[in-house]
């Protein structure tokens, strides 16, 4: 089946698989700077896929989305995070999950689960990108898994952003993108979110001397 598709459509599928791989790489990575780099790569891959989908479907406003994605997710936010990490002086800390291999195995299970869930949806669609719905769902869930498995705030922000990547990817794959207004709004939200996170890092660190979110338990009113 794959052989009958034109080469650029094959490329869309390959890129989708690579986006999924970057999600796994984020899960496994325990250094914060490479993590940000992988995140940037993920943004770039998503953007290239969007551009290819735009070419495939002839919807030119998707090009704009692609450019925006590159600007925001492949360049600006990674740059912002990078600067933050440097200024917070945490670029050498370990930010990994406790059992990376276990987390990866759970991740693989999630992908299979997404495939199972997405199968009925895929039957409805006839476009090339229908198969990527499962992948984009998996990227969302893997982002959530990253949020759960990491204790450090920076890693969690990266997880959150990658989750957002998954949502965007799903929109592109399933319906060839959201209306431009919505997309602009979401992009703006993400941008503001990233900035606010940046401010919060300093706040959190000032109040609890750490960026370990498990320490936030101490804010609970219950005595331990």
């Amino acid at each position: 089946m794959l052989e009958q598709l034109p080469l650029y459509e094959q490329a869309i599928l390959t890129l989708a698989a690579m986006v999924m791989f970057t999600s796994f790489a984020l899960l496994a990575q325990n250094r914060v700077v490479p993590m940000i780099h992988i995140f940037a790569w993920q943004g770039l891959l998503v953007a290239v896929t969007t551009a290819l989908v735009a070419f495939d479907s002839g919807k030119h406003d998707l090009y704009l989305s692609a450019i925006m994605t590159i600007a925001l997710k492949a360049l600006f936010i990674p740059w912002l995070l990078h600067r933050l990490v440097k200024r917070l002086g945490i670029d050498r800390e370990e930010h990994g999950a406790e059992h990376p291999a276990t987390v990866l195995m759970i991740g693989a299970g999630l992908v299979i689960f997404c495939y199972y869930v997405a199968q009925p949806i895929e039957q409805l669609s006839a476009s090339v990108t229908r198969n990527t719905i499962a992948i984009s769902m998996a990227v969302v869930l893997l982002g959530m898994l990253m949020l759960i498995s990491r204790g450090k705030a920076v890693a969690q922000v990266v997880g959150f952003m990658s989750l957002e990547n998954g949502l965007f990817f799903a929109a592109v794959a399933a319906t060839h993108g959201m209306p431009m207004v919505v997309e602009l709004g979401v992009a703006f939200d993400v941008l503001v979110g990233a900035v606010i996170f940046g401010v919060f890092f300093f706040q959190i660190r000032d109040s609890i001397d750490s960026l370990d979110v498990d320490q936030l338990n101490r804010l609970s009113e219950q005595d331990e």
Binding site: A17, M20, L104, N131
Partner: peptide, 14 residues
């Protein structure tokens, strides 16, 4: 993991 993703992408995408 790479091999696993290869396998899964074969099943899901191809």
């Amino acid at each position: 993991t790479l091999a696993l993703i290869g396998l899964l992408s074969h099943i899901i995408l191809e």
